[in-house]
Nucleic acid binder design. Structure first.
Lengths: 100, 100
DNA sequence: GAACTAATTAGGCCTTTTCCTAATTAGTTC
DNA sequence: GAACTAATTAGGAAAAGGCCTAATTAGTTC
């Protein structure tokens, strides 16, 4: 959960996942979209991968990155619960064990 | 938007906003919940305030912090849009100007 | 107003993050 | 397999983040 929000905390990384929203892209496609060195983009992609936000697959000489929606939904669940301020917290997010 | 996700990227700060979900609390209440120096907690509260996630109000000698839901909803909107992968992006988040 | 409570700002140290260039690995093509 | 394309890992400098103690501000109480 922490690496997830950490990964979302950088504008370049958020932009990358926005780019992946509609379709998978290669490292090259992504690197070309930013005014920074390619290894820097690779670093951001690794951060996203470690957080589970993207998945990678080799495709010939290229690497194809795709968005992993379920990781997005995890972050979403945290914020949704917050947005219901005042109501009781959802079990899924706060309880440590089953009710007796 | 960036300061918003930055603020959400630290576990202590996420815990603080969880604590504020049900009701406003004073600095003292919040600081007491963590095993760290009070000024460190103040620092986190300032980060949350700068991001618009909390609002502060003096109450006698104390400061009362409350969650600002609309900031949470802003982050929520970003993630919701992502979660609809494949579909066209929402105008609210991507368009720079009105359609002709 | 002196003493006490609540909380903040200031300053410094250490760690992590971010970015770069250079070197390396993996795959394709002739 | 040499040359080329695609992308990564390595190493290091600069900036940002997180935490602490000490000092300060703001408010209350006697």
């Amino acid at each position: 959960m922490n690496s997830l929000f950490k990964a979302l905390s950088h504008p370049v990384r958020r932009r990358i996942i926005e780019m992946l929203r509609t379709r998978p892209l290669t490292s090259g496609d992504i690197a070309a979209a930013f005014d920074m060195a390619w290894p820097t983009v690779t670093g951001h992609l690794n951060t996203l991968k470690d957080a589970g936000l993207v998945e990678v697959e080799r495709e010939g000489a290229s690497m194809r990155y795709r968005l992993n929606i379920s990781a997005v939904e995890e972050a979403l669940a945290f914020l949704m619960d917050l947005a219901r301020a005042g109501e009781p917290a959802s079990d899924a997010l706060t309880s440590k064990e089953k009710p007796s």
